[in-house]
Design a protein around this nucleic acid. Structure first.
Length: 390
DNA sequence: TCTGGGGTCCTCTCCCTA
DNA sequence: TCTGTAGGGAGAGGACCC
């Protein structure tokens, strides 16, 4: 196996959420298992036994159950997946400090500096796979390649429980027969547009002038497609990627037309968003409200504040103002609302608004954070959210 | 037929300013 | 002062990813 010039690993857990569930409930082993919410939920993860029936991620759970009536549907336990992820990332960081987590279940590793200690990249990949399986009972697939993009493609091509090395000299031979959807950033819409241009494989794109791609997709996307299709990807593995926005959203079990209920929901989401901001040490200058109507039309409205904030009360006031000024029919039913904080700065930069008392909501909410950390999320809440449950 | 939640990035439009 | 224009920032929406 020629792994010369292949310092980048992409490690991807196989059916991660479902694998954690099977690990924690051994009686599920060998059965089709779907992780996802019932009702209006979608499939977050499914074991390969369920996938054999055509079940896929992001598919409505109801549709998945029609395809595989024998499947066991398990509600998601995000805390358990986050805990498993932290432990698995520790295995990666014992190999190299250059680890870039992409999500809970996958990461890039730059192992160039670990060769002398642990051997060539393919051997390191095998080591990682063994340790994840032995310590967590979960299989993972690893792509080994000269760049992040090729390593990610390689891990996807060897799933499940596989290892694939793409030597530097073989990159184009590996890349060009793949369908255009293999390229990062090409989804259904872009694939349709490329098909209209007669481009169906990555090789087709590589043989198309960048000027043509830029004319069709814009300069940034055109350049991006041309580079990836030619195997050009010089991005380094980055251990710290700053967050750009933080938010929370929720789909109702039934559409809601009552403005008071929606404002209460905005309060709950503002609380969650503010708590996330504070725990990350951020304040946000821009507040975005997302409203999805019963017919699935999605509207966003945003406002940039004079000063950054991490205070739920301020976020909620802005969110309500945005909701009121969105121009919706007063009786419009919503299926989802969301609150997002963007334009993040370090919290130390947060300043008081003109005329604001020096002590007040910021201190109150930080005190609430401490109580929540000690006694749980239901220990202290705004009265409006408590009333709802009485 | 039914479409989650948490994100990022890009494009387009509008408005302001020089 | 008026007009045309270019650039930048904000806001909205869409596509995409896991």
């Amino acid at each position: 196996m020629d792994d010369t010039g292949c310092p980048i690993l992409h490690a991807d857990m196989d059916a991660f959420y479902a694998s954690v569930e099977v690990r924690d409930q051994p009686e599920l082993a060998g059965r089709p298992v779907i992780v996802g919410a019932k009702g209006r939920g979608v499939v977050l993860s499914a074991t390969y036994e369920a996938r054999a029936y055509g079940v896929r991620s992001a598919m409505p759970t109801s549709q998945a159950m029609r395809l595989c009536p024998a499947a066991v549907v398990v509600p998601p336990r995000r805390d358990a997946y986050a805990a498993a992820s932290r432990e698995i990332m520790k295995i990666f960081r014992a190999v190299t400090p250059l680890v870039e987590p992409l999500s809970l279940d996958e990461a890039f590793l730059d192992v160039a500096g670990a060769r002398r200690r642990l051997g060539p990249p393919a051997r390191i990949a095998g080591l990682i796979r063994d340790q994840v399986r032995e310590q967590h009972g979960i299989t993972c697939s690893v792509g080994v390649a000269p760049s992040k993009f090729i390593a990610k493609l390689a891990s996807a091509r060897c799933k499940p429980d596989g290892l694939l090395v793409v030597p530097a000299a073989e990159v184009l031979r590996f890349l060009h027969p793949l369908p255009v959807e293999a390229l990062w950033g090409v989804g259904e819409r872009a694939a349709q547009k490329l098909a209209r241009l007669g481009l169906r494989t990555v090789g087709d794109i590589a043989n198309t002038p960048e000027a043509t791609l830029s004319r069709e997709f814009g300069a940034a996307v055109g350049r991006h497609l041309a580079n990836l299709a030619s195997g050009r990807d010089n991005r380094a593995v980055e251990t710290e990627v700053a967050e750009k926005s933080i938010g929370a959203e929720e789909t109702f079990s039934e559409d809601i037309a009552d403005a008071d209920v929606i404002r209460r929901e905005l309060l709950r989401l503002s609380e969650r968003t503010a708590r996330s901001l504070r725990s990350g040490g951020y304040a946000a200058k821009t507040i975005v409200v997302k409203l999805r109507l019963a017919n699935f039309t999605t509207i966003t409205r945003s406002r940039t504040l004079a000063e950054p904030t991490d205070v739920a009360r301020h976020i909620h006031a802005t969110a309500c103002a945005l909701y009121s000024s969105a121009g919706l029919d007063p009786h419009a039913a919503l299926r989802l609302v969301g609150v997002r904080a963007a334009n993040l700065t370090a919290a130390a930069g947060a300043q008081l608004e003109l005329g604001e008392r020096s002590r007040g909501w910021p201190e109150a909410e930080r005190a609430m954070d401490k109580i929540t950390a000690r006694f749980g999320s239901t220990a202290v809440r705004p009265a409006a959210l408590v009333e709802r449950e009485l």
